[in-house]
């Protein structure tokens, strides 16, 4: 199988879906001639033309709102928010409109659209190019929220998102774009939305994570194996709808759970996962559920030592797992 990067998986999924279905088109700031500021849409305008690779004015609400209108009509727009941090002007359209269109029209209308957004830190992006915004949307029924961590899952899930009949927020961790490479099948495949995946089998501690921190967990697991600690790693891949069954199975494997995400601790999705575990798997637990997350500060600072303090890393993850293993 060919090995490609996380961002190449995005481009491949877009290209293949645009080849397959004429209704699929991409729009956003700099997605056309420039091919995206991260180059996720590189080469698409050459292949599909400016009508299907639309450079929009600098207006996030319009990018979302126009996508909603086009999707209601029957198109399959894939909108890009240049950075997840800049999604805020579009929140009204996403939350008041896209999320509620099917419900409020009693199933008459729906919005099959995808909004892609690079999120997360560790790239010297400071406060407004580093945020994790998923918790703003996980409490909004009507949206699906996808947060892949590997090229294989990026491609398979993005294809599923484009074919989905409901609005999907597709969050791509920007630190993973060129850092994470992996095998991707040459033939067409999809990864279903709403299915978590065990990325490593283990018996002592269960780690539940997604995105960049999932890779920290895998790295930590390798280290800890040398110390005789066996770590079970579950990649949520989709936050909404959450694969509760997979979460409960993963808990039962070890009885000790660490939930990790880069999003802030308070209100972060780990709280919801933890609540489900305490409600439905209490008697499986041998230790309190632990969370390791971004600190409760407004956003990630610029100066390297401050950024490093905010960010998680394999070392912090290793320590947290070891502590739980020793409980």
């Amino acid at each position: 199988m060919p090995v490609i990067s996380y961002i190449e998986a995005v481009t491949q999924a877009l290209r293949e879906e645009m080849q397959r279905d004429e209704r699929v088109f991409v729009l956003g700031e700099d997605v056309g001639v420039r091919g995206g500021v991260f180059r996720a849409t590189a080469g698409l305008i050459e292949e599909f033309g400016p009508e299907r690779v639309l450079d929009t004015p600098l207006t996030e609400s319009a990018i979302a709102g126009v996508s909603i209108g086009a999707s209601v009509y029957g198109m399959r727009p894939v909108a890009e928010m240049q950075f997840a941090d800049f999604i805020m002007p579009a929140v009204n359209q996403i939350v008041s409109e896209a999320a509620k269109m099917r419900y409020r029209s009693n199933n008459s209308w729906h919005c099959p659209l995808v909004i892609r957004a690079p999120y997360g830190g560790g790239v010297h992006g400071a406060l407004y190019h580093s945020q994790s915004v998923e918790k703003i949307f996980t409490g909004v029924p009507g949206l699906k929220i996808v947060t892949p961590s590997t090229p294989h899952d990026v491609k398979g899930l993005l294809i599923s998102a484009i074919r989905d009949e409901d609005p999907v927020l597709f969050f791509e961790h920007k630190r993973c774009y060129r850092l994470i490479k992996g095998e991707v099948p040459e033939e067409e495949y999809t990864v279903p939305i709403g299915k978590a995946e065990v990325k490593r089998e283990g018996t002592d501690v269960t780690v539940i994570s997604y995105g960049l921190t999932l890779h920290f967990a895998l790295k930590a697991a390798e280290e800890l194996e040398k110390e005789g600690i066996s770590v079970h790693v579950l990649d949520l891949r989709t936050l909404i709808p959450l694969d509760k069954e997979a979460v409960l199975e993963a808990v039962a494997k070890t009885g000790k759970v660490l939930i990790i995400h880069e999003d802030n601790l308070t209100g972060g999705f780990g709280g919801e996962v933890s609540a489900i575990i305490s409600e439905q798997a209490f008697f499986e637990l041998d230790a309190p559920v632990r969370r390791l997350a971004g600190p409760d500060v407004p956003a990630m600072p610029y100066s390297p030592p401050l950024e490093k303090e905010f960010m998680l890393n394999p070392e912090k993850v290793t320590n947290a797992i070891r502590e739980l293993a020793e409980f």
């Binding site: 009508e51 299907r52 319009a62 709102g65 996508s67 909603i68 209108g69 086009a70 999707s71 727009p77």
Partner: peptide, 15 residues
């Protein structure tokens, strides 16, 4: 909010 949806429908018509 509906104003942008009309623009989207019009964009689809053009496409």
């Amino acid at each position: 909010t509906q104003l942008l949806h009309a623009v989207g429908v019009a964009l689809a018509a053009k496409m």
